[in-house]
């Protein structure tokens, strides 16, 4: 780990101002991802601003939405009755993430900001455009079992590691931020960006912009949501593929649908075309299979990860069938 200075504050505006003023400063919340990457020298901030004292730790149920403070820990969020009731997919995704110890430290805001598990990104001895723009992507022709089949570019085929973010897609979550230019609300689907030719950019946040909360609107749709994850190990492992799904059925027809996919793209992937294809039709195996087929339209494997394409299709069908039931 490179040396750095440390400071802390209980004021969000002070935190934002301090980080905004210093290109080499970063916010420090749970630290589980940032400190790990600092040990690998993938991250080397000169200043860490500890934001754990900021008043963003609560989870509060309002009339039309539940607000999860950005500093709420993953474990507390997963166990919170309002979250379990309003957005079961989010609670399930959190419980399927990491380990109890990591969930006790890691925060909701930090979960959205966590960086890819791509082995080439994390190994400074290898080529990675995300870590060093222009150096090349060693994963495309390398060991790419974990990598993206959708949304990748010639410069990057990493996958986003968050389970929760995939579930948030299924419940229309909104990310609330405070930055150097004030506050804003960003729909979760618009929060993360695709690599294109700038894989070093992963979200729409500006430097110094701080996540303060994640809001989940209360809806029947969200309350039906579920999260399903496939992995090699039975626990404590990132997803091979995952699905966050929600479905509402009225008069025998699908009235609304949400489909988020994980483990297959550089960002939490919303299968919008599949959602559209589901609306208005009767829930059936055929309809789910068609939605799955549409979801992987344009998908491309790189060798080791080819299996993810049939795998995610099957998981989509399974999870839609389970939410429809």
């Amino acid at each position: 780990m490179r040396p750095f200075a440390y400071t802390r504050t209980a004021s969000s505006s002070a935190a934002v101002a301090t980080v905004t003023a210093d290109r080499d400063a970063k916010f420090l919340a749970g630290g589980t991802n940032l400190i790990d990457l600092m040990k690998d020298t993938v991250e080397a901030p000169a200043l860490l601003v500890d934001i754990n004292a900021l008043p963003f730790g609560d989870i509060v149920e309002h009339r039309t939405f539940v607000r999860i403070g950005a500093l709420a820990r993953m474990s507390d969020t997963a166990d919170h009755p309002a979250v379990v009731r309003i957005a079961p997919a989010v609670a399930e995704a959190l419980l399927a993430s990491a380990s109890p110890q990591l969930r006790n430290a890691a925060t909701i805001g930090g979960n959205l900001m966590q960086r890819t598990r791509c082995a080439y990104f994390r190994d400074v001895a290898t080529a990675c455009n995300k870590r060093e723009p222009g150096r090349g992507c060693a994963a495309i022709d390398g060991i790419n079992r974990q990598h993206a089949v959708l949304g990748g570019s010639r410069d990057c085929i990493c996958v986003h590691p968050s389970d929760m973010a995939v579930a948030l897609l299924a419940v229309d979550a909104i990310v609330r931020t405070r930055g150097p230019r004030g506050e804003r609300s960003i729909p979760i689907a618009a929060f993360h960006t695709l690599p294109g030719d700038t894989p070093q950019i992963e979200t729409v946040l500006e430097h110094g912009e701080l996540i303060v909360a994640v809001d989940i609107p209360i809806s029947r749709l969200a309350s039906t949501s579920t999260y399903v994850k496939v992995r090699d190990r039975a626990s404590y492992e990132f997803a091979l593929v995952s699905v966050g799904a929600a479905l509402s059925v009225r008069d025998g027809k699908i009235a609304d649908a949400r489909l988020g996919l994980g483990g297959i793209a550089p960002k939490p992937w919303r299968a919008l075309a599949s959602e559209r294809a589901l609306i208005g039709v009767a829930p059936s195996a055929a309809a789910f299979e068609r939605a799955a087929e549409i979801a992987v339209g344009g998908a491309r494997g790189y060798g080791h990860n080819d299996f993810k394409i049939p795998l995610v299709k099957r998981l989509i069908v399974k999870s839609l069938a389970s939410v429809a039931a």
Partner: peptide, 23 residues
Amino acid sequence: TDARSGRIMNANLADYLVPVNKD
């Protein structure tokens, strides 16, 4: 091991899997 570079690419316990209790 990366077949081109000869570099081991999963040299940690998140990517080199051994069973956890649940397994």
